[in-house]
């Protein structure tokens, strides 16, 4: 059990470092943006020297860079990201109302993607070499290659403009109407993300089907569903740990899809704030989304570690594996530390 705890600590430390790095990059954006940061923070208001001085004062712009970063992180921990340049309202209050619709969109797409992606991934792997595998593999190839805004525009044209089955923009009132409005954008996101999951599932599962233990199970007439369960269990680690990638794809895609369907969500707000150079809003949204992605990766990594008994004991076992393989020229000791690290990825 201590080993699990050790891993959790290690992974959480990695998570905190990632978030700090991200925060640093995102914070630096204000300074990387061309022009005087104070001026950027004034926005469209009339610029007077007094106003600039006040801004410098309140934001501490004359402090050393890292002191400012420290203050910013301190504020961020208390969810204080300053005021929006466009509206002057506190960033969190301004952004919050946009979050609900994005949350719904992402949740619907995520559920659909996971269900469809894993289902078709398994079907495709099971029927490899057959027609159904070809069809699924090709559709998922298009799904992973096609940018979501292009797919979005296509379905918008066909199903909303041409056939008029779905609304062109907006989010609708009430549950059913909302679902109806979100159907097309969710479908676009699902198409892209489930394609990715199909690919991951398929390529994780096929090697399992060719392994010796599969043949040995077949040689004993173990029921087919049990054989498949074993294969899926063995393939689950790479699928589970791809969750970070999946979520990153999903959130990146949301920005574009919301913009195609004019959905007033976080993505759309982020895109428009980027063009308006509303830096505090951009910082807040970017950090929030990145936080979610990093947290999700950390959680699934920990889950995968707990599920997999071999990784649970990996550390303890390292010495024993070493003892067994030391004299095996295929595993020279020099590469052992590398292999154990790299083997997880």
């Amino acid at each position: 059990m201590t080993d699990v705890l050790k891993y959790i600590c290690k992974r959480l430390a990695e998570f905190i470092v990632s978030i700090l790095c991200l925060a640093f990059v995102i914070f630096s954006l204000l300074y990387l943006a061309p022009g005087d940061p104070a001026r950027s923070l004034v926005g469209t208001k009339q610029v007077t020297p007094e106003l600039l001085a006040t801004i410098r004062e309140t934001y501490g712009l004359d402090d050393p860079f890292f002191v400012q970063f420290g203050h910013w992180v301190q504020g961020a921990v208390h969810l204080d990201f300053g005021n929006s340049i466009r509206t002057g309202a506190p960033v969190t209050a301004y952004v919050a109302p946009h979050a609900a619709v994005t949350f719904e969109l992402v949740l619907i797409s995520l559920i659909c993607s996971v269900v469809l992606g894993i289902f078709f991934g398994v079907v495709s792997a099971k029927g490899r070499g057959k027609l159904r595998d070809d069809v699924i593999a090709n559709v998922s190839l298009v799904g992973t290659s096609a940018p979501s805004f292009a797919v979005g525009l296509f379905v918008l044209y066909v199903f909303a403009l041409k056939f008029g089955w779905f609304p062109i923009y907006g989010v609708g009132e009430g549950f059913v109407d909302r679902l109806w409005h979100l159907a097309l954008p969710a479908a676009c996101l699902t198409f892209a993300v489930s394609a990715l999951l199909i690919k991951i599932t398929r390529s994780a599962l096929i090697p399992e089907m060719e392994k010796d233990y599969t043949m040995f199970m077949r040689a004993r007439s173990v029921p087919t569903h049990e054989v498949q369960a074993a294969q899926i269990r063995n393939a689950s680690a790479p699928i589970l740990t791809s969750a970070g990638l999946v979520l990153a794809n999903l959130l990146g895609g949301t920005v574009l899809v919301e913009s195609v369907f004019s959905i007033p969500g976080l993505g759309n707000l982020l895109a428009s704030s980027v063009t308006f150079h509303d830096v505090p809003v951009v910082q807040f949204i970017a950090l929030t989304l990145a936080f979610i992605v990093c947290l999700a990766s950390a959680i699934v990594d920990i889950l995968a570690y707990i599920i997999d008994p071999t990784s649970r004991r990996r550390r303890m076992l390292r010495s024993r594996v070493a003892a067994e393989n030391w004299d095996d020229p295929a595993n020279p000791p020099a590469s052992l530390p590398n292999n154990t690290e790299g083997g997880v990825s």
Binding site: K211, D212, Y213, M215, F216, M217, R218, A219, R220, S221, V222, E226, A230, R233, N234, D308, P309, T310
Partner: peptide, 29 residues
Amino acid sequence: RGKAIGLIMQDPFTALDPLGKCGDQILAG
């Protein structure tokens, strides 16, 4: 398979499901 003929495979390091307990694996067939 199993009923008439039993098979012992070459490589004991790969013939067993790495994630299954030995007892369950013996029972599976």
